[in-house]
Structures are given as structure tokens and as C-alpha cells.
Amino acid sequence: MLKNSTQGYGLVSIVMHWLVALAVFSLFALGYWMVDLGYYSDWYQTAPMLHKSFGLCLFALMVFRIIWRLINPKPHGLSNHQAWEKTVAKLGHFALYAMLFVLMISGYLISTADGRAISVFGWFDVPALLSGLPQQEEIAGDIHEILAWSLIVLSAGHALAALKHHFIDKDATLNRMLKPVNSTPTRK
């Protein structure tokens, strides 16, 4: 129930998938909104603090998600999926992971460019590891912005693909990410 099997995803993977989806879209909206806040807005300090704090939490979640993926059985692709669909899905999933990591790291590099730590909800500090590179906050900022938009576009494509499988192909692709696989491997 918790772990993946070759037949499908376990509860942990499913919950993480949807948490990451929620976090990505919320952080995008928050980031998009906060950069245009007026100086006297109540949110001027809070919104970036939340963006950075949740962003770092997402990083921790993604690291755990990778580890979980490595120590769990890999669900097989559905038999009705075409070879090209499998290839595109594989590339797309890899791109989602890679872009999300570079996106989070670039955000971290903006805020730590001058050596300042990032406070996570005021609870603890994540120190700067790489600072003082030439134009660090500018280059990291450009990468962060471009990747944020790219990731949203790619996520939308990912969602559309899932809907296509669900409504047009009428296969179990989307359902597998909604219902945890039963521990008895015989059920389909």
C-alpha cells in the first residue's frame, strides 16, 4: 500500500506527486504575484519569505522523492502504451525533475548571492554555499524566471497527456496516480 510495486504506485509516491504539483503551481503563482507588490504592502516581506521557505521544503521533499524512487520497485508501463509514448514520457519526466531542481537551486542562488543565509519560516537558517560569483543574483534570477515559465508549460503538457490517456485512450495511467496499488501483486 505504501510502497510501489511493478503494477503501480504506492501511497507515498502518490501523495508526494500531488504535493509537488500543488507546491509547484502555488510557488509559481506566489512568485509571479510577489515581485510586483508595492513597498507598503503587508505582504512585501512575508510573501518572499514564504516563497523561499516553501521552496526549500520542496527541495527536501524532492530529494526524498528521488531516494524513494530509487529504493522502490519501478511500476511497469501500461501494455497499451506505444513505444514512442514511453520514450516521450521518459524524457518528459526526466525534464520535469531536472528543471525543478535547477529552478530551486537558481532561486537559492539569488538569495544567497551575497552570502546571506535563507531563513525557513524563521525556524532555522539554510546557509549560503556559493556566493559572490560575478552577477550571481542576475544570472540566477534570469534562469529562475525562464525555468519557472518552462516548468509550468511542461507541467501543463504533462497534465494534458494524463487527461488524454484517461479520456481518449481510456487507460489506467491517471488512475494509477490516484489509487495506491494493492500489496497483492496479482490485481491489475
Binding site: 518572499p48 539569488i110 544567497t112 548571492a113 551575497d114 546571506r116 550571481q136 543574483e137 542576475e138 534570477g141
Partner: peptide, 16 residues
Amino acid sequence: TKSVNSNHAERDKHIR
């Protein structure tokens, strides 16, 4: 103007 430096990277990015 790119060389603006107020000892705070996020603020300098904003000023630029």
C-alpha cells in the same frame, strides 16, 4: 549602473 552595490544582493537585483 550595473555596478550598484547596497550590500544586499536581492535589493541590488531590484535596483537594477
